[in-house]
Nucleic acid binder design. Sequence first.
DNA 1: GTTAAGAAAGGACAATTGTCCCGATTGAAA
DNA 2: TTTCAATCGGGACAATTGTCCTTTCTTAAC
Lengths: 202, 202
Amino acid sequence: MLRTNLTFLSFIERLCETNNESNITLRTFAAGFRFVKQGEKIRNIYIIKDGISKCFISEENGKDFIIEFLGKGEVVGELEVIKKIDCLCNVATISEVTAFVIPDHIFMALTEKNSEFTRLLLQELSTRIIQTSSRASFQQLYTLEYGLLKLLKLQSDEQISISKEDMAAYLGISVRSFNRTLQQIKAKNQDQSLIILLERLG
Amino acid sequence: MLRTNLTFLSFIERLCETNNESNITLRTFAAGFRFVKQGEKIRNIYIIKDGISKCFISEENGKDFIIEFLGKGEVVGELEVIKKIDCLCNVATISEVTAFVIPDHIFMALTEKNSEFTRLLLQELSTRIIQTSSRASFQQLYTLEYGLLKLLKLQSDEQISISKEDMAAYLGISVRSFNRTLQQIKAKNQDQSLIILLERLG
DNA sequence: GTTAAGAAAGGACAATTGTCCCGATTGAAA
DNA sequence: TTTCAATCGGGACAATTGTCCTTTCTTAAC
């Protein structure tokens, strides 16, 4: 649920070191800041160095769907640059986030000239397709209770804490359903590792 | 709903012509044949030259989810080769399908040495992420009736006809729900272009 | 034409989920 | 400490969806 790509991150860090006068910069955003806005143009891509963000689509009916939580090494905006389109998603920070900022033309040049970069990018895009497809299938075909249980376990494993609203948006359900299902899980849960997390969620 | 990539197809066709002794071959599969099996190893990638296939995940609870319908120019198996993993999905033909078959090592060599190929592949993978994410969001956040209506319109526009079972699997619902929702749409429909299709579906 | 078997459609009921709203809780200001 | 407002949780009901099973339709054999 929290996607990361440490290989990609260290590649970018090396690139910055060797390439001092490059146009790659670092920026820090406060928690809760929406640094990419759906529907707008984008001129930079971002690679998260630290912190957690959420990438989400706001539908016309007012509901939000969280595509993924993004951690270290995850890229934002590259699809839009590759396809030359406006932003598909919003991206907002959950914690404070520091990110490398790469102008679109530099990014495109990298995809054309740096074969290691391209290789890593193909890996990243492939992983994303795999995860997105698998999740879509899982969320459509299993019960909410099973899906939420899986989500809680992932959170527990990864030692992160996501708000209820965000978990509901990730599962594509209302907060009401989320709370209801949480009670069911609490009533049944035998898993020691989840008790702390369930306690925190009330 | 029927993804195609004519640019990619013509690139491969040109590649075959110029590169006669290459290891790229053509194969034809009868309708209904499952040519990629979830969980198995894969040694070739396929590029559809003609016909329609479906790419679907079979979940452990016995349900299937159709990731996408694949038409001309769509690639199958490249994620598995890039990530060196077993097949995530099944791929089965719906009509008779003719496909280019490219051995994994040839495919990988192309991604490393042919920058035009890599560029097209990045485009293809990006498109897929965009479509998969948008659809996941849409299907989670809108009503079934709205989703099915959209699906029917797409089918009508693209002049293709998909079985009820496949449409239900694409929407991630039971055939019972599909039928029920179809009746609701029929009762309300004002759209001339859908009448023929709705008639065919009974 | 009749019959039987299998497939498809739909009725009935149960389970799930969303919406609306009220009561409880929290936190800040007085 | 009290009070008020804002947020959060959950009850009640409606709508949606799945499961199970019966009915209807199709088709092939006689």
